[in-house]
Amino acid sequence: MVMSDLAPILAEPVAELPVAGAYAFETKWDGFRCLLHRADDGTMRLQSRRGASLTTAFSDIAEAAERDFPEDIILDGEVVIWHDGRLDFGRLQRRLNRKAATVRRELAQSPAHYVAFDLLRRAGEDLTGLSYERRRKHLEVLFAEWSLAPPWTLCPMTRDRQEAMRWMRQWAAAGIEGVVVKNLRQPYKPGVRGWSKVRTRHTTEAIIGAVTGTVDRPGSVLLARLDERQRMRFVGRSTPLTDELSRSVKAQVSPAAADHPWRSRVFSAGWGSRETLHVTLVAPELVAEVSGDTAVDAGRWRHPVRVLRLRSDLAPPDVPLFGTGNGPSAG
């Protein structure tokens, strides 16, 4: 197995957990997917889902691996950072493409952990052709034999659907995004969407501060919440509106006044994208009920949320403050 040619197996989004079949359920972490392996020169390397090196950014994990792993291995897992009792994706990003001094400061302030959920090679033996069930057993044996402790974590796994559903309810507040479903009999298929994932979602409210497109034909909405000082904070964008919701938004929004707080603001088309959106500001008076997942950074939903309905019965002061309630938190 050549590491440079190895792409991690992927997960296909699905609406719900399967009700029948031989499956394992694992927690879905809000972190960076990461393959960890020992290079030809004996050093440990970390590789992202797309093949980029994460070794410098997470040198604390690489150094721990060189210390703790006496054999040649390839692990598949997730690099995460805990902060204030929950997973903090923003602190992971702070380590990328930064100066050495910045990375060293982050290493000291926010140490990373590695959550292992698959073992692809050990002591020169390629394990990718084995079933998930057998690979999981090898991984559990490795943790036991090497007495692995933090920064190493063995990903929780259950075969009980009800238990997995409890995880989604109970651990969402800590930043667990949902559950990954894995067929017990399936081998590891690099680059293929061979697993599935179900995201934990919450229903909550936000204020519509702008629309994409025009007021006559709104395509999606940009959402806001007020903070404790009554400043309007951007919290996310919706998925495309249904035709019915688009017509309802058109009928209920009002033109923005000259003092709209987003008057000079530019919005990007997506997380990390430099492409800008064409938006039309509207009076921040209409409230929407939305369904969003638990991936939140610096108070914003990382992924577009779905508008369920408009709440003309609510006013902006009725919406949870920025940093509280279900959905975006100050992080």
Rank of each mutant, 00 (worst) to 15 (best):
R231L: 03
L142P: 00
R231F: 04
G270K: 02
P261A: 02
A206R: 00
R169P: 11
V249S: 08
S254G: 11
V282E: 08
R274Y: 12
E177P: 01
S268T: 12
R231H: 03
R263N: 13
S238T: 05
A149L: 13
F143N: 08
E205D: 09
G272Y: 12
R217H: 15
V282H: 09
S268H: 14
L184F: 11
K250V: 12
L154D: 01
V282M: 09
Q170L: 14
V211P: 04
A257N: 13
R161A: 13
N183W: 12
W167L: 00
P218W: 09
A164M: 12
M157P: 08
R237I: 06
S196F: 11
P261H: 03
R199H: 07
R233Y: 03
A173V: 10
R265C: 11
V180M: 13
A149E: 15
R217P: 08
P240T: 05
E145D: 11
T212R: 09
T280V: 08
P151L: 02
T280I: 08
A174W: 07
R161W: 10
A173M: 01
V180F: 07
T204S: 09
A283T: 10
A258W: 11
S220H: 06
A172W: 12
A144P: 06
F234E: 02
L142Y: 00
R199C: 02
A172I: 13
R229V: 04
R274F: 14
P187F: 05
R225C: 04
V198R: 07
G236M: 05
T214K: 09
G272S: 11
V279Q: 00
P190N: 02
G219L: 12
V192A: 07
R159E: 14
M157T: 15
D259N: 07
T280C: 09
V266D: 12
R185Y: 14
G270F: 01
